Amino acid sequence: MQNIDREVIEKAKQAALEVLLHNAHGPYHGLPRTAGWGYPEPYTRDLMFSILGIAASGNELLMESIRSVLENLAHNQTKHGHIPSLVHDKDDRGASDTTPLFLLGVGVFRKVSGNPEFLQDAVEKALDWMDYQSPSDRNLVAQQPTSDWRDEQWTIGYGLYVNALVHCYLRLLGKHEKADSIRHDMSRFTVTGGVMHHHVHEGLVVKYKPYYAFWSYKIYSSERFDLLGNSLAILSGIASPSRAVEMISWIEEECAGMRERGELAVDLPPNFFPFIKPEDPDWHGRYAEYNRPGEYHNGGIWPFVCGVYVAALVAAKKYKLAAEKLVVLTHCIQLSGSGREFGFNEWIKAQDGKPMGQDWQTWSAALYLYAAKCVEEKSTLFFDEIP
């Protein structure tokens, strides 16, 4: 890494911290904002992901802010253990990823605070809730369409991302036997072209490809690539070291091909590819307005997801590539739709690299800090202890 890159990264880290401190107090009970101006609400999933960067920063004010978020989520938890989608609104329910993200967040906070019993009652209730999300009454949990962070994209049944989160929190909470079962079930070769045999349980491995499927349920599945889910699979140890290396090579080769075809203008992977197009059977009419190819959840480049990918590269010991991608990510977060020096925008359009959505996004800033810390220390904080 050149000195000029190090200087820009240090400047970006300070800017990220400024974003997080600015967003630490919002208009809803003093809880953090999801973005500097556009999203004043405290969205659970955004703030739970931000714990990784906040914990890596070591900033006491931010740690107290995130403690308040966790305590409010526990207070607003339903009687069955479900965690709401908005921290302050106990009636805003229905997300498939908020409860596993809460458990992940508590796991990280416990490690940083040294308090292994933090919110134990709420944790037990949340674990019970997650147990009931498995239709087969085994290990993999299922979800409804548009119920995870992709609120404009269909994921049906056993989604990779949510199940990777389950594996993450089980590891962080020390529940390794159950985590081993999740890993085992996810590794079954069942995505085989529409044939479901009764003696084979659902899984998420795609035959002849190194990555895990987007989702799978009985005879239906999607083999499109989910960057966040697969990065979490590498980070938490679902993917073996050899599979992780093979997967990363596949990602980089596919992205090179997209750049050659004019589908990708930035040297970072889209959150999802190949893009869903109007002629594809998994296209939905609403996508034409809200989820076009190369945009938003249908292949947009999300800085927070790329931060997790950089961490996954470190986990796979691809240190040089991780440093290179961090530099590219740094230049991307400098882009701004509002003219600010560092935009930390919500997402970036794949085909032209234009920053889109709200700027000063909390999770964009937080996961940048986390990625930078991982590259600096050649270690994946909070995950490097996972067996």
Results as ranks from 00 to 15, higher is better:
residue 300 G to S: 05
residue 207 K to I: 09
residue 287 Y to P: 05
residue 30 G to K: 05
residue 169 Y to S: 00
residue 219 I to E: 15
residue 289 E to L: 06
residue 371 A to G: 06
residue 183 R to F: 05
residue 89 D to W: 07
residue 122 A to L: 13
residue 80 H to M: 07
residue 217 Y to H: 15
residue 340 R to I: 04
residue 308 V to E: 02
residue 38 G to N: 14
residue 50 S to F: 07
residue 270 P to V: 04
residue 118 F to W: 05
residue 357 G to T: 02
residue 380 T to D: 01
residue 294 G to C: 09
residue 142 A to T: 05
residue 378 K to D: 02
residue 297 H to C: 07
residue 47 L to K: 03
residue 172 L to V: 11
residue 269 P to I: 03
residue 290 Y to M: 07
residue 198 H to F: 14
residue 286 R to M: 10
residue 128 D to V: 13
residue 117 E to K: 05
residue 119 L to A: 14
residue 49 F to I: 01
residue 36 G to Y: 08
residue 123 V to C: 13
residue 357 G to C: 06
residue 184 H to E: 07
residue 341 E to D: 15
residue 249 S to G: 14
residue 307 G to E: 07
residue 98 T to C: 12
residue 210 P to M: 10
residue 27 P to F: 13
residue 242 S to T: 11
residue 252 E to M: 09
residue 18 E to V: 11
residue 110 R to M: 00
residue 92 D to I: 08
residue 249 S to A: 15
residue 326 L to Y: 12
residue 47 L to C: 00
residue 261 R to I: 06
residue 30 G to T: 03
residue 158 Y to E: 05
residue 15 A to C: 08
residue 101 L to K: 04
residue 323 A to M: 08
residue 184 H to V: 05
residue 174 G to Q: 10
residue 77 Q to A: 08
residue 271 N to F: 02
residue 346 E to G: 04
residue 147 S to N: 13
residue 162 V to W: 02
residue 226 D to Y: 08
residue 234 I to H: 04
residue 285 G to K: 08
residue 273 F to H: 02
residue 111 K to C: 04
residue 178 K to R: 15
residue 63 M to T: 12
residue 356 M to P: 03
residue 10 E to L: 11
residue 81 G to F: 03
residue 340 R to A: 15
residue 133 Q to D: 04
residue 35 A to N: 02
